[in-house]
């Protein structure tokens, strides 16, 4: 049907990629600078109060911390541009190797939880918008509770109920997809639910608010007066206009889930990037944490790009610019 050409979509992609390069640079630099600028001596921290001065100086030299900041930064930038994030201070393995091994776990969790939040949240939200009374208050109540329960607490409750009391799912651990798809799915259920619950709440609320707002707009009344059936008005026209804020929220849910994996992977003992980050923090393993930060940011960039594209498709006004 009457659809105009849209070369502007390419422009959107280009724009976002252009913005992303400085973003990645900023985040990487930020993590580097934080270490350098925060009062506190990393070498001293690692060596500990019991360490000797000789050990301290040796560590400082091996970490390159005795060189001026600019030199270290330049060296580090050069390494990073070749994809070399250095080696873990703890076990001396290359950071990138450590991270790549765990990427699939975290991705499974985060993508799974975002999808779950999207599907369940949108359905609940639509129901809440259409039936103002019962379903509406139910959505409200569930949203509030879903947002208030901390993910670690929820995870533990889920384990207590569905892994210990009723052994439906494994309490901990992760099974790679190629080993056994079924077990892979089973190992993901509880952590994904724990991760997704606040997301479901937010998406449901946003969907409901958006739908309600759209249903009050004049064009809905025009379409109704012109005789379009209710189903078409709600699911084609209203949903389309209500979608944009929901898409934004989904992007935010993704980003929040990335942060959430830090805790959830610990609760369920999953070998992902989040668990690695915690480990690295307690061990003051700076190269490793910097690597995780850059990986996470890269994922955020990809998600933002997808959101921009979705926006362009949803809202014709954006395309014209």
């Amino acid at each position: 049907m009457f659809v105009p050409e849209s070369p502007a979509l390419l422009r959107i992609v280009g724009n976002r990629l252009l913005l992303s390069v400085p973003l990645l640079l900023i985040v990487s630099t930020l993590t580097f600078l934080l270490e350098a600028l925060i009062p506190g001596d990393l070498a001293r921290t690692i060596v500990g109060p019991q360490g000797t001065q000789a050990q301290y100086l040796q560590l400082k030299h091996s970490l390159g911390l005795d060189q001026p900041l600019i030199t270290r930064y330049q060296q580090w930038l050069e390494n990073v541009s070749h994809g070399d994030f250095g080696a873990s201070l703890f076990n001396h393995e290359p950071v990138t190797m450590l991270l790549n091994g765990r990427l699939s776990v975290t991705l499974s969790l985060v993508i799974g939880s975002t999808l779950l939040a999207a599907v369940v949240g949108v359905l609940l939200g639509i129901a809440g918008a259409l039936r103002a009374d019962i379903a509406g208050t139910a959505v409200d109540a569930l949203s509030m509770v879903g947002l208030a329960i901390p993910n670690f607490f929820l995870g533990l409750l889920l384990i207590a109920l569905f892994a210990v009391a009723i052994p439906l799912f494994p309490a901990t651990g992760y099974v790679p997809f190629d080993e056994s798809p079924l077990d892979w799915a089973r190992s993901l259920v509880l952590p994904v639910v724990a991760l997704a619950t606040p997301g479901i709440a937010v998406v449901a609320k946003q969907t409901r608010d958006s739908m309600r707002a759209v249903l009050e707009r004049p064009f809905i009344r025009t379409l109704r007066a012109a005789g379009l059936p209710r189903r078409s008005i709600i699911f084609k026209h209203a949903l389309r206009s209500a979608a944009a804020p929901v898409v934004t929220v989904l992007g935010l849910i993704f980003i929040a889930s990335l942060g959430g994996t830090v805790v959830v992977e610990s609760v369920f003992a999953m070998p992902g990037l989040g668990g690695l980050a915690v480990q690295a923090t307690t061990q003051h393993d700076l190269p490793l944490i910097q690597g995780v930060a850059v990986y996470f940011t890269a994922l955020v960039v990809v998600v933002n790009l997808l959101i921009d594209l979705a926006y362009g498709w949803l809202d014709p006004r954006v395309r014209v610019e």
């Binding site: 930020l30 270490e35 980003i255 942060g259 980050a277 944490i289 910097q290 933002n304």
Partner: peptide, 10 residues
């Protein structure tokens, strides 16, 4: 766009 938790971990 910066993941807050990670920065705090740093």
């Amino acid at each position: 766009a910066v993941p807050a938790l990670i920065i705090v971990l740093v």
